[in-house]
């Protein structure tokens, strides 16, 4: 129990495979292909300012919508009977086992021009809609894939909420709106923050969803990074863009109080 030595393999592992790779991102960002120091890659980032802006907008819209729909779902779930709660939890986690690519493909099939939705509209004599390859389909895909990550931490913090506090507020004359805004909402904020972090960061960095549901029309920062590493083989510019993305991630973490221990717990 008192042995410290057994942690050594991990300390070495994390040094080689966590710290060194992270430093390499910085190294590649500030060097050219010959390894000489340069600011050129960083100066090229300006060209992608609009892509960064677009990614942040898409991720923010998806996160806000996930928050609204997810909070409501978590709230209703927290008021179910015990066995219904566990059923809902299983149902919520089940799609997470089907991988991202497959889930996104499933959504693509439905949204296609001759997909199920447009066929149903056809039966009602409504002219078919262009659903796929639009901003709508990309945001829908983001919500579809990441909604559970918003619901779970909020549900957990609502579950922890002591019912006696709510009863006390009611006894003291608070109406249901007051109970919600003064008690339930503030006490569930750690869950909300974890949810925001867990949805915003993957939404910001996605390339699969924008590629499959945006059909090349919605070009996000994840797609730029993917192209830099898998098509143009310009690792240095790719690393510079990744560095900026890490910076945005760190800002997100600081803003949403990741330093808060309870929020930290929610992420796991």
């Amino acid at each position: 129990m008192k042995s410290r030595v057994i942690a050594v393999p991990y300390v070495i592992w994390s040094g080689i495979f966590i710290i060194v790779p992270t430093l390499f991102v910085g190294y590649f960002a500030f060097t050219d292909s010959n390894g000489t120091f340069t600011f050129e890659n960083i100066s090229k980032i300006g060209k992608y300012a609009n892509v960064f802006g677009r990614s942040i907008v898409y991720a923010a819209v998806a996160t806000v919508l996930c928050l609204i729909f997810g909070y409501l779902l978590a709230y209703f779930m927290a008021h179910l009977k015990e066995h219904q709660k566990s059923l809902c939890l299983v149902l919520l986690m089940l799609p997470m086992w089907i991988n991202l690519v497959l889930r996104t493909q499933a959504l693509q099939n439905i949204l296609m021009d001759n997909g199920v939705i447009n066929r149903l509209l056809g039966l009602l004599n409504i002219p078919s809609l262009k659903l796929l390859d639009t901003s709508f389909s990309v945001v829908l895909g983001l919500i579809y894939n990441y909604l559970p990550f918003m619901v779970l931490p909020i549900f957990t913090s609502l579950e922890k909420l002591d019912n006696k506090v709510i009863e006390a507020a009611q006894d003291l004359g608070a109406n249901s709106v007051n109970v919600f805004t003064k008690i339930t909402l503030p006490l569930s904020m750690p869950g909300v923050y974890s949810g925001i972090i867990m949805v915003f960061i993957p939404c910001l960095s996605t390339f699969v969803i924008s590629e499959k549901l945006g059909g090349g029309k919605v070009y996000l920062i994840g797609n730029v990074i993917n192209d830099m590493f898998n098509q143009n083989y310009n690792f240095n510019v790719g690393a510079a863009i990744s560095l900026v993305m890490m910076l945005i991630m760190i800002i997100t973490l600081v803003v949403f109080g990741f330093l808060d221990d309870e929020t930290k717990e929610g992420i796991l």
Binding site: F24, V25, Y27, G222, F229, S242, M245, L253, I267
Partner: peptide
């Protein structure tokens, strides 16, 4: 340090290991 891979977007974990 342990939190880095948990919080990093997958794409960053992927490219940083690729660079290594």
């Amino acid at each position: 340090i342990t939190y880095i891979p948990v919080l990093n977007p997958d794409i960053i974990t992927g490219i940083s290991l690729l660079l290594l």
